[in-house]
Amino acid sequence: MSFDNAYQALAEEHDDARWAYGSGFHDEMSTVDRAIPSIVDRADLFAYALMLGDDALVLSQRTAEWCSNAPELEEDVALANIALDLLGQARLLLTRAGEVEGAGRDEDRLAYFRDETEFRNVRLVEQPNGDFAQTIARLLLFATARLALFARLSASADPVLAAVAAKGVKELAYHRDHAAQWTVRLGDGTEESHRRMQAGLDRMWPYLEELFTAHPVELRLAEAGVAVDPSELRAEVDAVLDQVLAAATLTRPEVLPLATVGGRAGRDGVHSKPMGYLLAEMQHIARSQPDAVW
């Protein structure tokens, strides 16, 4: 075979202009029924879609900060891919939140024109990148819990959440695998990399509990078959993390969960100090040119 460029041999014939490169993709969301299930409280569904969407958006923002700064070129691409996957999930979830709310807010409005107290992400995802090991530790905890969640959420009574979850499972399996691979490499690497990986886990572990703490919105929607009670995820997440830590010669951190503020945490809009700075950077352009179209 001879081709002018190698990719011709890989590409199938297609005239779908959405895909800049590659072929055989299809938009899994295009055929999803977007009607809102009648059994569901709209305010609850709006809040839940925001919770999941904000987790993905904020972690995407953090992960994107690595662009051009990763330890190796190939890892730079891998982290950017993960950030893009998460941003894709955030867009679908925030779009769903906006249409459930019915107040005319689209994904951009929700991403750029809400203040810190209106964001419902868990505090884990807003933590600074730190060194590479700390970033990997954060991704390991998040992706493990999110994969367990999405595997269950793909059976949600809300067809849009079910479709978003089903689509996200494949991406999150890759994210979890990537983080686990690096956890083992660093943990079972040099003395210095072992020390840093353990320190990264120690730094992120206090935020793990929040991933299993059910918010009343989640409990009500879980009752209706729409959401997943996150406390159900703990056993699976613990088993995966224990397996990774054992392979990596690392120890499970003995740390207390991060305290709530009067029982309120990320899901209630109570965030840690880095969150405000993150939003200031993320929202700056949109806020200074509020009527701009891009």
């Binding site: 075979m1 081709f3 190698a6 990719y7 041999a9 890989l10 590409a11 199938e12 055989g24 190796e72 070129l73 190939e74 891998a78 990537h178 691979q181 490499r185």
Partner: peptide
């Protein structure tokens, strides 16, 4: 490719081992 008949050389990359090279 998914319906391709043979493997085509597409480029090169750096990786510490085969597993990460595939990823």
């Amino acid at each position: 490719g998914r319906r391709g008949l043979n493997h085509v050389h597409v480029g090169s990359l750096h990786a510490p081992d085969a597993e990460m090279a595939v990823r």
